[in-house]
Amino acid sequence: MPTTAPTGLAAYSEVTASEASLKRFLHGLPGVDQVGAEARAAGLGTRSIKTSAKAWALDLAIRMVDLTTLEGQDTPGKVRALAGKALHPDPSDPTCPSVAAVCVYGDLVGEVKEIVGSQVNVAAVATAFPSGRASMDIKLADTRDAVANGADEIDMVIDRGAFLAGRYLQVFEEIVATREACVRPDGSHAHLKVIFETGELQTYDNVRRASWLAMLAGTDFIKTSTGKVQPAATLPVTLVMLEAVRDFREATGVQIGVKPAGGIRTAKDAIKYLVMVNEIAGDDWLDPDWFRFGASTLLNDLLMQRTKMTTGRYSGPDYFTLD
């Protein structure tokens, strides 16, 4: 991932220089027609892929999973079990890859880290997740705490209230500040994912604007949802975000990752997403560095389908761990 902004991105410095210019820019982005975008997403959903590609796609999808638990009732025991599963999703099959990351609240990062070490990333939600309603100092402290606890990745939420009120510069500055809070003493930084909570932004126009806003602010990933609001990730919302990262790279040379989260439960769905990644953003994004699934139950279905492909028979939930 580029650590210095290329000239392409520098060209946008004026855009973010003031509230007015930022608003002008975001409102000047091409609109998104809801019906057309949804029809395109549905059309991509009818593609079918080769059996050999499917085996690969299932493994890729597993490698893209941010295995997630974000409950008030989470305990060290719970997240340790989850971490174990993240390392070895299918203990009976050593060829089964690990997932990309385990995603937990910031206070539980250390517990996970103890189990997964550096084999699987640890992602922490921050900035007063899920609502984003806290003062800036608290949000930044939340972020710094998670980074200090060893988080490899920070999943922040934007202030949807500010965004919907048109205070784009405030959202922009929050992302910039959070990105700075991700920097470790050695100068490296925890990768930042910016969660829009698309279910609250409601329109695809807003999703496109939020995507550009976050990308201009220096995020590494854009992410649909917290999982706490319905609808969470959908194919068309992800389509709009994939179009945004595609266009952003064309404009600036900077590649940004995409993470749909919440509501993706089946291997079939996951493959539809991968087809979409392939056709909209291109195969550069078919990699855990650039595309993730935020999910909890998806993993077991991926594992079941994977077993079906290797054994030729259908499996059942009893053969996979519950965590």
Binding site: R47, S48, K50, T51, S52, A55, W56, L286
Partner: peptide
């Protein structure tokens, strides 16, 4: 990067 080890291909799905 495994992405190039297996091409992501659509099947002939007649």
């Amino acid at each position: 990067m495994a992405k190039n080890s297996t091409p992501f291909e659509y099947a002939p799905a007649p």
